[in-house]
Design a protein around this nucleic acid. Structure first.
Lengths: 196, 196
DNA sequence: ATACCATCCTAACGAGCGCTCGTTTGGAGA
DNA sequence: TCTCCAAACGAGCGCTCGTTAGGATGGTAT
């Protein structure tokens, strides 16, 4: 109660749009589709969002926020780079798995935003990647990582993580932390058997 | 010359559509957009393709074909699993990098096909992944790979490969083979320094 | 009781969509 | 020269899109 109006129509619209943009894509989902699923008329959406672009934008912004506020404490933590990198991978996996729809929209549908906002997202992604580059750089300098190219290595780490939303299911056999740990193992130790 | 009618209008439409579907997405690209870029009227497209869905379908089919006919000889080759897996990674990377637009459409836009064709693509992807699973399985049985879950390991391999189209540029510093070799190194040896 | 405001409705707008159709065009074969 | 046909034109069909306008409704604060 009190100030927060959770499960308000706006929240329902936000959540439903996230779901449908993930499921069918932004342009294949109409304003009326979303409204119908929430139980109101198409035009009524405009009491809550200024435009369809605004609706997508608020979803993308919220998703970006979640990634940043999850990774920043890890990147800034006072811990060994070995554990920090593992922790970062698990954290990223947890953000994705805790809201697959949002992750999918953030990864795939963001490019249908208005040109200005698309540029803004590009900037955010660069910023996020540079946080990873800094960590990887430290790993290289301290001799923990063998890679020489921090940017390439960061991309490699993020690629398997960002693939997660295509196959991970919350009702599957793995928890978010298990899946994060598995990816961390694969990423840092490789698939090949160590002892030869 | 002779029989082949390359650079025919149909080929131009195919190529241009592939480009624009990659660039803006299927639903954000109109029939008239494509036609204009080729230099004909919107209606004229229907002299070459039955529908917009048909156009997308032919692009997706062609892309799938390229993956299959590239990987099958490798999977069936008489060579050690160590080299076979490396060769397979490089091959997949070459297919992607040799036509980034097609790879992007095949990876991202296929889901906007008609339901029947979407199901067909799902089947193809499963089939393709099972080729990889068979190779990975062999790698596990022969003790080359440490992983215990062939499906998960296959997904891990393909995830960094399928991320390629988002950042690889043919005019960049790396060739297709170099990038394939790099990904193979990362994937099988891991980012961590081996000797501790 | 009254005023207010957010929310939702119905109805409609203009634009653009995929696609069709009757027609024109221009080159190849007889 | 005449015939044929694929390819392209250009108008326009039916429809859906995102968005807007004006009015009803119902709860809250005065």
């Amino acid at each position: 109660m009190a100030t927060a109006t959770t499960n308000s129509t706006r929240d329902q619209l936000f959540h439903t749009a996230s779901q449908m943009f993930c499921e069918k894509g932004f342009h294949a989902t109409s304003i009326r589709d979303i409204a119908e699923r929430v139980g109101i008329q198409g035009g009524s959406i405009y009491s809550h969002f200024e435009s369809k672009d605004d609706l997508l934008w608020s979803i993308v912004q919220h998703a970006a926020d979640r990634f940043f506020s999850a990774i920043r404490p890890v990147a800034g933590a006072d811990m060994g780079i070995t554990q920090k990198l593992r922790k970062a991978v698990i954290t990223h996996a947890e953000v994705i798995t805790s809201d697959l729809d949002a992750a999918a929209v953030y990864t795939v549908e963001w490019r249908h935003l208005s040109p200005e906002r698309r540029a803004e997202v590009t900037k955010l992604r660069d910023e996020y990647e540079s946080i990873w580059r800094t960590m990887v750089d430290q790993g290289i300098r301290e001799g923990y990582l063998a890679a020489s190219d921090a940017a390439g290595a960061s991309r490699f780490i993020l690629s398997s993580l960002n693939y997660l939303f295509t196959w991970f299911r919350p009702d599957g056999p793995l928890t978010a932390e298990e899946v994060g740990t598995l990816i961390a193992d694969y990423t840092f130790d490789g698939l090949r058997r160590r002892t030869v």
